[in-house]
């Protein structure tokens, strides 16, 4: 099992007491694709970040079990964590505009991430970078190598991010809203590319998003989170038969091109959902 999470809790100390953002999340991932879906504030990003221990200083993580690739995340020292981050698990964030270095050419950035984990000469690294850019289907990778991030489009920037994350051959890819900053056509392209690369390389994927139908196209399983808990976990193919009112609500409140509704149903929340 690549990822094993049992009863994960993340809490923050505030002036008025402790706030529990993640309240007892459990799941396991092998070499498969898991989608985590929920509204903002549902704790989906924190769950993924807790796995890499990339949380703010004041966050407190507890869990019955939190392991990645056989390493106990709760007990590992910083050195061991550095060996995991990037190398064993790649992290793709929402907006390439903010996650790429604006004053470094794309080729050098990809080469740097390759060299950091694999060693080798500068020249080898640059060749590897060209190859990686080619793998994420950038046409004319040599030309793109010499460009700066502001000179490429959002979709291209996100491809570059994916290329950087793939450089050390990680076992798991965590994508936190990788396409929310992109428009619909590019969105589908990027998700298809990610799905394809993950399947081809036999990696695991955690795809975090707020778009439930979209995620179901690119994942094997979907976990629906609300207010720090997993409300329902179901296989992507059976989304239409979802049982939980929250999942149904999320699906219903989307406007639809083919099934027009005069008025969109608004999600009504039930306090009983949070009593386990």
């Amino acid at each position: 099992m690549l990822v094993d999470i049992q009863n994960l809790r993340v809490s923050f100390a505030t002036r008025t007491g402790t706030f529990e953002a993640v309240r007892g999340v459990s799941f396991q991932i092998g070499t498969e694709k898991l989608g985590i879906v929920g509204e903002s504030g549902s704790g989906k990003s924190l769950t993924a970040r807790a796995l890499m221990r990339l949380l703010p200083q004041n966050a407190r993580i507890t869990a019955d079990r939190l392991s990645f690739d056989g390493v106990d995340i709760l007990k590992a020292d910083e050195r061991a964590m550095r060996g995991l981050r990037g190398k064993r698990a790649g992290f793709i964030l929402q907006d390439p505009k903010y996650s790429l270095n604006p004053v470094m050419t794309i080729g050098r950035q990809v080469a740097e991430s390759w060299r950091q984990h694999k060693g080798g000469s500068r020249k080898e690294a640059l060749e590897a970078a060209v190859d990686l850019l080619d793998q994420v289907r950038i046409r004319d990778p040599r030309r793109v190598c010499d460009l700066y991030p502001h000179e490429v489009s959002g979709g291209m920037g996100q491809r570059v991010m994916i290329a950087m994350m793939l450089a050390p051959d990680p076992a798991l890819l965590i994508a936190d809203e990788p396409t929310s900053a992109l428009d619909a056509t590019v969105q589908a392209e990027i998700l298809r590319l990610m799905e394809d690369l993950v399947s081809k390389r036999g990696m695991g994927l955690i795809l975090i998003s707020h778009d439930l139908p979209l995620v179901s196209h690119f994942c094997d399983r979907v976990a629906v989170m609300y207010s720090g808990r997993v409300m329902e976990e179901l296989s992507a193919g059976t989304l239409a038969q979802a049982k939980h009112p929250y999942t149904k609500g999320l699906l219903n409140c989307l406007p639809s091109l083919t099934h027009p509704k005069p008025r969109l149903p608004v999600l009504s929340r039930d306090a009983a959902w949070l009593q386990s």
């Binding site: 179901s216 989304l239 639809s256 083919t258």
Partner: peptide
């Protein structure tokens, strides 16, 4: 007409096809 797929321009058809494809749960 857009809903019914009575599009004239190939780009409109393309956008529509993608939208319809992604909006239904898999």
């Amino acid at each position: 007409d857009l809903r019914a797929g009575k599009t004239q321009h190939p780009h409109t058809s393309e956008l529509r096809a993608l939208s319809v494809d992604l909006e239904e749960p898999a």
